[in-house]
Design a protein around this nucleic acid. Structure first.
Length: 811
RNA sequence: AGGCCCAUAGCUCAGUUGGUUAGAGCGCUACGUUGACAUCGUAGAGGUCAGCGGUUCAAGUCCGCUUGGGCCUACCA
């Protein structure tokens, strides 16, 4: 299922990442023959969407209140339909292979029904309740918001020290506050029970300046003696802590700030109607005038801000619907602890544990119109009926004079955002309502950041638009980049150079295919399988490599290591296939040194490589695959439904790999010797190779024309290098280069220096290996294969030492 | 304040359960257009694996501390 993007939203790179990964998984499983469904859908995103339409209405000089609920909702639906197509279009652009016939919208009838069902059940079980509690109130949005929609920001504020007279004495105590406007709602002053400075105040009361209200002193251990004066004013209805303290000490509460962020009538005639921040100024002025203000200090503190609208959250007491998450959270905790649900990477287990252990009742009602209206009705005599429908409610109430609760449910009650918390809520809800685990594995990606590792944000102006990236680099390159960067537990620094690099990889696919199509014999075809018997070493080698890569990729996908899977595919295609196999195929295809079935092997490997890459690069692989002669034998229509290549054990061939590995290393070494000797590509060299392993020797002998072609030497002779040859040793093969046909003979000082340095390094390394191998502790405790490997390596280093000394004429 | 994560080449990052000359891409240097590809090829330079200590025959990898980053959670009014 797709985590629903907001219906009116534009996809951002985070969506692109999610879609790439999910589509990759879906295509992979589909090719493996699973009935893979990727369900698309969009979210009505209550607050965000309603805000946009309200903004539009404002430009028309009207408002939702003026339109009324019904007309406003019509406008919302119009807007939704207008923008809905955007999401679909953008997902198509990314290559998302969703089943669009099953697309859902969170406000669809069926989904709304499910939401009502969930609500009614949770209500009847007593988990959903209605009550007066402190909530995070956003005055600008005019609604309660959840803890997750509150962003804590560090702000430079002020600490106001205010004198409160003590009742029945001349003493004045000093209280520090960051929010003097709330003092109008003070109903007590708290002190620490063991604070010796204030023991004399127990049982007494302070008098609230400007108001004259009597504020009893209460002793509470929560008071921090170190902070301020160690005395705290208590405003139960305007501070979450004070609310708790108020309950503990049975204190009354007074609402002095209203839902609109303005002072209420209870704040008194001098302040009623003022905005909360204007009131602060005026109160401070009054305190100063009347001699209560002692001092104002600069003070840095953390203030909750509304994520959507940016203004400071006002903690207010209001009547809301709450959902008790405790038992559901316990079930979700158990699911992860028992391993029924596994998180990838498992470092998330701790966050899961922490978040669900500390979960609080969730305020699920929102004072909005756009969303699932709460299925609760009120009778005229104030009874509350929760039911699936008005009919049901009427029957239960015994009257049809009912009013439905005007509020809607938090969007997250029905769906969510692309976040960890969304998953957590789905697990909790599903476990409770269906008694089944919704997910067996949860893969969590990092956050997409910009090239500097900064979080992308509109205000920083560093957001990348996926559709723009797609048109610049192609969807395949973007997908490949995102998948390769998705390493567990790490954020994803996205930069354009990298995408450009993977675009080049796409180009490589294209060119390799072009080579194959233009050079293979007419009868060559993609084969369902190929019997390696009768094939030469290069063909057996590439088939063997292909099988191993298929096995590795499969294993990486299983554990969500898309980065490693992509890496393997990249190197197989570019390194093994293009750099080596295509080069190796040239002398065979040109007729210079024919080998059996090279065309078939070339096409078959290409076919499988494209299929392996298809989940990551769907567009290009389909395009190229369709052009391969014989691809219909794999699937008549599309690569999407062709089987995902698996390991072919019959293709794996250690001998061919060892032989070809030696061949490629010899070729590489000869090329670098040529450079080191300061010779140009046209200098005519003769190569002598002397392999230690007879089976490697056989491959090198049979494929001598390849060494000649790739190393660009005149002749290749098997056997020890003659006197005076430049010698070296790689992969157990002694090589010697002679240059009788070249004018130059003397070794340059630079070359000699380099060679001597190399020899020194080697000698030092041999010394270390000798020490290790003569250490009885190492021999006694290290496993046999490590000791054996060490000995073999030492032997080879010694041989190489001989070869290098010989090159330097040190005999 | 508590918790979590990170520190490896100029940059961005890999590095499986410890196994002995630490890898890739980009960037950089030199050379190169022989019909897949200059969005390329060939060869190369570049690293005290943040620091200190410990465990071990063996540490980039495990443990502790320090420093420097990042993230999340928190009721210092």
């Amino acid at each position: 299922m797709i985590p629903p993007p907001n219906v009116t939203g534009k996809l951002h790179v985070g969506h692109a990442l999610q879609s790439s990964i999910q589509d990759l998984l879906t295509r992979w499983r589909r090719m493996q023959g699973y009935n893979a469904l990727w369900l698309p859908g969009t979210d009505h995103a209550g607050i965000a969407t309603q805000l946009m339409v309200e903004r539009q209405l404002a430009t028309e000089g009207t408002s939702r209140r003026e339109l009324g609920r019904e007309l406003f909702l019509d406008r919302m639906w119009q807007w939704t339909e207008q923008y809905h197509g955007n999401i679909r279009e953008q997902l198509d652009l990314l290559g998302a292979s969703c089943d669009w016939t099953r697309e859902r919208f969170t406000l669809d009838a069926a989904l709304s029904h499910a939401v009502r069902e969930a609500f009614v059940r949770l209500y009847r079980e007593g988990l959903i309740t209605r009550g007066e509690y402190m909530v995070n109130w956003s005055p600008k949005l005019g609604t309660a918001v959840s803890d997750l929609e509150v962003e804590t920001k560090t702000v430079q504020g002020k600490l106001y020290h205010v004198a409160y007279p003590v009742e029945g004495s001349d003493e004045r105590i000093v209280i520090a506050t960051t929010r003097p406007e709330t003092m109008l709602g003070d109903t007590a002053v708290a002190l620490h029970p063991e604070d010796e400075r204030y023991t004399h105040l127990h049982g007494k009361a302070a008098i609230l300046p400007l108001v004259g209200r009597r504020l009893p002193f209460v002793a509470d251990a929560m008071v921090d003696r170190e902070f301020g004066t160690g005395l705290v004013k208590i405003t139960p209805f305007h501070d979450p802590n004070d609310f708790e303290m108020g309950k503990r000490h049975n204190l009354p509460g007074i609402t002095v700030i209203g839902l609109d962020g303005r002072m209420t009538a209870e704040a008194g005639p001098d302040f009623a109607g003022l905005d909360r921040f204007e009131a602060r100024e005026k109160i401070v002025q009054r305190l100063r005038d009347e001699g209560y203000l002692i001092k104002i200090e600069p003070h840095t503190h953390n203030v909750g801000h509304s994520q959507r609208s940016g203004e400071p959250i006002e903690p207010l007491v209001s009547t809301q619907w709450f959902c008790d998450m405790r038992s559901m959270a316990d079930q979700a905790l158990a699911a992860v602890r028992d391993g029924h649900t596994r998180l990838f990477p498992d470092s998330w287990d701790k966050t899961w544990e922490h978040w669900l252990t500390n979960i609080k009742p969730w305020c699920i009602s929102r004072q909005l119109w756009w969303g699932h209206q709460i299925p609760a009705w009120y009778t005229e005599d104030g009874r509350c009926i929760v039911a699936h429908s008005l009919e049901e409610a009427t029957a239960e109430a015994g009257t049809d004079r009912l009013t439905q609760d005007p509020d809607v449910l938090d969007t997250w009650f029905s769906s969510g955002h692309i976040l960890f918390f969304w998953v957590a809520r789905m697990v909790m809800m599903a476990l409770h309502l269906t008694e089944d685990i919704p997910f067996r594995a949860v893969h969590l990606t990092g956050l997409v950041r910009d090239a500097e590792g900064q979080k992308m944000s509109k205000t920083k102006g560093n957001v990348m638009d996926p559709t723009e990236l797609v048109s610049e680099y192609g969807a395949d390159a973007l997908r490949f980049t995102l998948a390769s960067l998705d390493s567990p537990g790490r954020d994803i620094p996205l930069n354009r150079d990298q995408i450009a690099g993977y675009r080049a990889f796409g180009n490589k696919l294209w060119n390799a295919t072009r080579f194959a199509l233009s050079r293979i014999p007419a009868e060559a075809r993609v084969r369902e399988t190929i019997d390696p018997a009768g094939l030469a070493a290069p063909e057996r080698w590439i088939l063997s490599r292909l099988s191993r890569v298929a096995a590795e990729v499969d294993a990486r996908f299983e554990t969500f290591r898309f980065d490693e899977a992509c890496n393997r595919l990249y190197h197989f295609f570019w390194g093994d296939f293009c750099d080596w196999y295509i080069e190796l195929s040239k002398p065979a295809l040109s007729g210079e040194a024919p080998r059996p079935r090279v065309g078939d092997v070339l096409l078959t490997v290409l076919d499988r490589a494209l299929r392996l890459l298809h989940p990551v690069m769907p567009f290009l692989t389909e395009e190229l695959w369709q052009r391969l002669p014989g691809h219909e034998a794999i699937h008549p229509e599309t690569i999407c439904l062709a089987p995902y290549p698996r390991r072919e054990e019959g293709w794996e061939d250690d001998a061919a790999e060892a032989g070809m590995e030696a061949l490629t290393q010899v070729v590489t070494r000869v090329r670098s010797l040529r450079t080191e000797m300061g010779l140009g590509p046209k200098a005519k060299l003769d190569l002598h190779i002397n392999p230690a392993d007879p089976s490697v020797g056989r491959v090198l002998q049979e494929q001598a024309p390849l060494s000649r072609f790739l190393a660009r030497v005149e002749t290749v002779a098997l056997g020890p290098a003659p006197e005076g040859a430049r010698r070296d040793l790689v992969a157990g093969v002694e090589i010697g280069v002679t240059m009788e046909r070249v004018e130059k003979t003397a070794m340059s000082a630079e070359e000699r220096g380099r060679l001597e340095k190399e020899l020194d390094k080697l000698t030092a390394e041999i010394g270390r290996a000798e020490d290790r191998l003569s250490n009885p502790e190492f021999l006694g405790k290290a496993p046999a294969h490590v000791v054996e490997g060490g000995r073999a390596k030492l032997a080879e280093m010694r041989e190489r030492q001989v070869a290098l000394r010989s090159s330097l004429g040190l005999g």
